[in-house]
Computed example of a mutant assay.
Amino acid sequence: MNIKKQLGLGIASAALGLTLVSGGTFAYFSDTETSSNTFAAGTLDLAAAPTEIIEVDNIKPGDTMVRDFELQNNGTLDIEKVLLDTDYTVTDAAGDNTGDFGEHIMVEFLYNADKLDEVIYQTTLAELKTMTPEAVNENVFLPLLGENGLPVGTIDDLVVQFNFVDNGEDQNEFQGDTLSLEWTFTAQQTAGEDK
């Protein structure tokens, strides 16, 4: 091989080597920006005051008891629905009950204490116990609270009237009995929205 060819091949090899070396290490401009993001969940905080709505002794058929209580939204989210679950137990003092004491206690949800004739919904404790919480919301709380539900920071006064119904028949089996009523209020949020 002549010297020109060798010299040309050497230069070509050197150029190829430089190309491979410089191709793997090249410089470029860059910039970095960090974004800090936060997701903070709101709170649902429904309170009923007082927590004991009724405690009464020595009732008899024909007695009426009016009580008022508040539902308070102490959270940071609006409440769309208030659901009510009813449960009760009866202590049969004489052990002679053939009927359910709850069937003889009528519950009337009222608009306010001044107008006791404005009944929103009326049922017995026994029927209220079998109703779904959604049905109670539809029949009681929707008419009371309206479409807006219970917005943040609001308090709604509610009035309920209990009647020991005098059915005109023998109700002696309920003498000395105790009915322990438990109402569980559950708040549900409003629908999600674009933020």
Rank of each mutant, 00 (worst) to 15 (best):
F69Y: 15
V160Y: 06
D114E: 14
T89D: 15
L20C: 08
L18H: 08
D63H: 06
L84I: 12
Y28M: 10
N112K: 07
T25L: 13
V159Q: 04
D85Q: 11
T34F: 02
A41F: 12
A41S: 13
G17A: 15
V107T: 15
T25S: 07
F141P: 01
D114F: 05
F185W: 10
N172Q: 09
L71W: 03
F39Q: 12
T124S: 10
L181R: 11
G24F: 11
K4W: 07
A14N: 04
L20V: 06
Q6K: 09
V21P: 13
A126N: 09
S30P: 05
A191K: 02
F39G: 04
N148Y: 10
L125M: 15
T89M: 09
L7D: 11
G102I: 01
I79T: 03
A191V: 15
V107F: 14
F174P: 03
L9I: 09
N112P: 02
I11M: 09
E147I: 14
P50W: 03
L77E: 02
P143V: 02
W183H: 11
Y111H: 06
Q122P: 07
Y111P: 01
D87M: 08
V66C: 03
S22T: 11
E55T: 13
A191L: 15
I105R: 05
L44E: 04
N74D: 11
A126F: 13
G42N: 11
L142R: 13
V136R: 04
G8K: 05
L7P: 03
T190H: 06
